[in-house]
């Protein structure tokens, strides 16, 4: 139990109030649709509530909920996906230095949503959650080598699909992000 002295339901509600928005954001990136994201969050929170008495430390609650979220998302993909679909082929555009950032992000997001669920989960955990490869592997229950190869394959796919549209990722902006490989 997280706190033997407290009211479990109250503690659970406090946890949800504090962290549900962050979890919902991750759920959206995993599912690509706000409705599906809310469903994902609901399942995750229900399982977390059921496990509440067995979770001994409050710090362990969010990792537990996130693990349920990610694994449920990847197992749902084939059976329950009902979100928006990207268009078959995005319109080709002339690429220039003045390429609108929003359009480029939309194109990238459309291709991210076409990736297999596990590859997308790896990208979300690595580039949104900023988890290390080791932690990503532990959360997904796969080897670090698998995380590396899934990530590599996903990025290669994105590069190829963007390249087919004549988009060079980030060509409009200097590099700014901090490396988080390890």
């Amino acid at each position: 139990m997280v706190s033997s002295a407290g009211d479990p339901e109250r503690e659970f509600r406090d946890f949800v109030a504090a962290r549900s928005t962050a979890l919902l954001r991750t759920a959206y990136l995993l599912s690509g649709d706000w409705g599906a994201a809310e469903d994902l969050l609901q399942v995750s929170l229900t399982k977390t509530y059921l496990a509440w008495r067995r979770i001994e430390r409050i710090e362990a609650v969010e990792p537990y909920a996130r693990k349920v979220l990610v694994n449920t998302a990847t197992s749902w993909w084939r059976r329950r996906w009902h979100g928006e679909r990207p268009t078959e082929v995005l319109p080709e555009r002339a690429i220039s230095d003045g390429l609108d950032a929003r359009l480029e992000r939309d194109a990238l997001w459309a291709h991210v949503k076409e990736l297999p669920a596990r590859q997308r989960a790896v990208l979300v955990l690595r580039f949104y959650e900023d988890l290390s490869e080791v932690d990503t592997a532990a959360l997904l229950g796969v080897s670090v080598g698998t995380v590396k190869s899934q990530c590599s394959r996903a990025l290669a796919t994105l590069r190829r699909r963007l390249g087919e549209q004549g988009i060079e990722p980030g060509a409009r902006a200097p590099q700014t992000a901090k490396e988080t490989v390890r």
Partner: peptide, 20 residues
């Protein structure tokens, strides 16, 4: 760090900037 990684970070952040 490659530019695609930067773009992924930006894209993910932009897509969840507003939460319903």
């Amino acid at each position: 760090m490659t530019r695609l990684e930067d773009e992924l970070r930006n894209t993910f952040a932009a897509n969840v900037a507003e939460v319903p």
